[in-house]
Design a binder for these strands. Structure first.
Lengths: 242, 242
DNA sequence: GTCGAGAGCCTTGTATACAAGATTAGCTAT
DNA sequence: ATAGCTAATCTTGTATACAAGGCTCTCGAC
């Protein structure tokens, strides 16, 4: 009943939203029963998840949802930060006027973010709009390709954001920064872009904050190195349909 | 006899070096016979190739070595250019002295490049050293992670470089720019970095040059859209062992 | 001659049996 | 009681039979 693509997206979402916690076992046989699918297509799905860093395959032992790799988080933040600075400065220093439709869309997204906060629509809704905002910026500069590329490599960063948001509710600050970015663009002000982007994407992350509260999500002890991986079974918590 | 990992690397190399030309059919059954391997592990290999853009899978029809996507080339060049500018400027404006070992390694690589050109060791050797140089720059800034990330997405760019090199032999110019980059670093001169990197990575590519001579490698007509894909069989040209 | 239906052959997609490595539990010898 | 070996039972890895969809070539109707 569940198609391969559906299952892939579903697992991705559950891992990204931390519904499936790092360290959870994803056994081929168990899943093939649960999703009424033979092991072959299921292995395709797991292969892809492994390739994109969602899970870690321990040969002949099992597949575990990967731990959040803080090194990867830091690198991706730097990547995004560098790119967005350059993109914004390029946009702000264009001689041609900025596309009206694009800027309008950006303003609308910021409006929706305010709406989302006011309605208390939850973190996932806010994050979705936040992604939409930044993707629209990339689009404005003709760089959606690179946005998508980063998205393929952001498993760890995406989960980091969830944990980070859980700690500090700075949603209004984020919205304010979005608005400021748009103002800078329209005023053709390139002077403050570096500073704003750096702060907005929080290059100055401090892993220590997370280590205290979410240690079990981070840097899982490696399997096969005289250290117990802390395996916990998946059970039925993610709502199979069998 | 051939292991899965070996086959994967081999196919990657043959595709990157254009030994396997865009449009070449990689049939599962044919390859399984040729490499004495059952279809299951072979499909794993093809899956990964597809995921990284080396081949294009037409469901129920076949797997073709992908055409060189010039859009992807342009985007990756921009990505590399932006990152390398930032990395170099960061390195050049550090208060701490640059690591002696790292700078020595970079000088050595440039020396090897001269040696390679003098010995006429061929394009592949030169490209290998060129990659080594730029990777070493990323390493100096603690950004090897991002270098590797880009490498995973550079199928089209890597092949573009081969075609480009075939046209213009500017090897000495490239070496000179490498040397200039190192000089700028040691002199802490951030002023010329933007210009040098932009020119070095040739952001100003002109696809037209390639379209004339290598049209058959680019933008293959899409299969299944009333257009013949121009399929040519793989035959035995890549040296099977069966 | 031209168009269309259909069979055969091609491809990839799926299911499942079997192989092989890894861990663990238990039994035996000391 | 404990150390060590063995066997059972997990896991993923592989081989292969079968299913299903797409293309082409042929044959037939018009």
């Amino acid at each position: 009943m569940t198609s391969k693509a559906d299952l892939l997206n579903r697992l991705k979402e559950e891992i990204l939203t931390l519904t499936l916690k790092p360290g959870t076992i994803l056994s081929e046989t168990a899943m093939s029963e649960r999703f009424r699918m033979s092991r072959t297509p299921l292995r395709d799905v797991l292969k892809q998840l492994a390739h994109e860093g969602y899970i870690h395959v321990y040969p002949k032992r099992g597949n575990l949802v990967s731990a959040i790799d803080l090194e990867s988080v830091e690198q991706i933040i730097y990547l995004r930060s560098t790119l967005e600075k350059d993109i914004l400065k390029e946009l702000a220093s264009r001689s041609a006027p900025l596309p009206i439709r694009g800027m309008l869309e950006l303003r609308q997204i910021v409006g929706q973010q305010e709406e989302s906060v006011r309605r208390e629509a939850g973190h996932e809704d806010f994050l979705r709009l936040d992604d939409a905002f930044h993707k629209a910026l990339f689009a404005l500069a003709g760089r959606v390709f690179l946005w998508d590329l980063i998205q393929q490599s952001n498993v760890h960063y995406a989960r980091y954001r969830r944990l980070h948001l859980l700690q500090k509710e700075k949603l209004e600050e984020i919205i304010g920064e979005h608005r400021l970015i748009l103002d800078l663009l329209e005023n053709r002000d390139t002077g403050q872009i570096d500073e704003i982007v750096r702060h907005h994407l929080r290059e100055d992350i401090h892993a220590a904050d997370l280590r205290g509260n979410f240690a079990e999500y981070l840097n899982l002890p490696r399997l096969g190195e005289s250290e117990d991986p802390g395996i916990r079974t998946d059970a039925e918590e993610s709502g199979g349909q069998g």
